[in-house]
Amino acid sequence: MSSKLEQLQAIVAPVIEALGYECWGIEFLSQGKHSLLRIYIDHADGIFIEDCEKVSRQVSGVLDVEDPISNEYTLEVSSPGMDRPLFTLEQFAAHAGEQVKIKLRVPFEGRRNFQGVLRGVEEQDVVVLVDDHEFLLPIDSIDKANIVPRFD
């Protein structure tokens, strides 16, 4: 996790948890004047638009005071949804057996994109089975990972 994401996590996670939600993960896309701070929240009862609004108001106020992002940005608060992004080793472990799509920052064995069955974690690696071949992908090299929703 980058130092900017760690800083943002340290600021917003306690606020979200104090409201009774889980801070599922944070994405910060720095693009000059069009930067985006996306915060995913979760709750055992699900997430509704009112939940996102409540968290957005509280987090926005704290971010205005702390001011960790120097330029303009858009704040988005969302549920992880069916194509749930995965951020931590614990999240990867909890979703073992699911189909996942993983994009790496740099190529691993000549490729950056992997789609297969999430087998779990081993130390700091995410284990994915793709076409009968098991890959151990270092968590630090993962740029983006999502559950592939099933519609049975």
Rank of each mutant, 00 (worst) to 15 (best):
M1T: 15
M1D: 09
S2R: 08
S2I: 15
S3M: 09
K4D: 11
E6K: 06
Q9E: 14
I11G: 01
P14S: 05
V15Y: 05
I16K: 02
E17W: 09
A18F: 07
G20N: 13
I26N: 00
Q31P: 01
K33R: 15
H34G: 13
S35D: 12
R38F: 01
Y40R: 00
Y40K: 01
Y40G: 03
D42L: 13
G46N: 11
G46A: 09
G46P: 15
C52Q: 02
C52N: 00
E53N: 15
E53W: 10
K54I: 09
V55L: 00
S60C: 12
G61S: 09
L63I: 12
P68I: 08
P68C: 09
P68W: 05
I69T: 06
N71L: 14
N71A: 14
E72S: 15
E72D: 10
E72H: 10
Y73T: 07
T74C: 15
L75S: 06
L75G: 06
V77L: 04
V77C: 03
S79H: 03
G81V: 01
G81T: 00
D83T: 09
L86N: 05
T88W: 07
L89K: 03
E90R: 06
F92Y: 04
A94S: 11
A94F: 02
A94H: 05
A94K: 07
A96I: 00
A96F: 01
G97E: 07
E98T: 10
V100Y: 04
I102K: 02
I102M: 04
F108R: 05
G110S: 09
G110T: 09
R112K: 12
N113I: 08
F114W: 01
G116L: 13
V117M: 12
L118S: 02
L118T: 03
G120S: 07
V121I: 05
E122H: 07
Q124T: 14
V126S: 03
V127P: 02
L129D: 06
V130R: 04
V130E: 05
L136I: 11
L137S: 04
D140C: 14
S141I: 08
I142W: 01
D143K: 08
N146G: 11
V148M: 09
P149H: 07
R150V: 13
F151S: 14
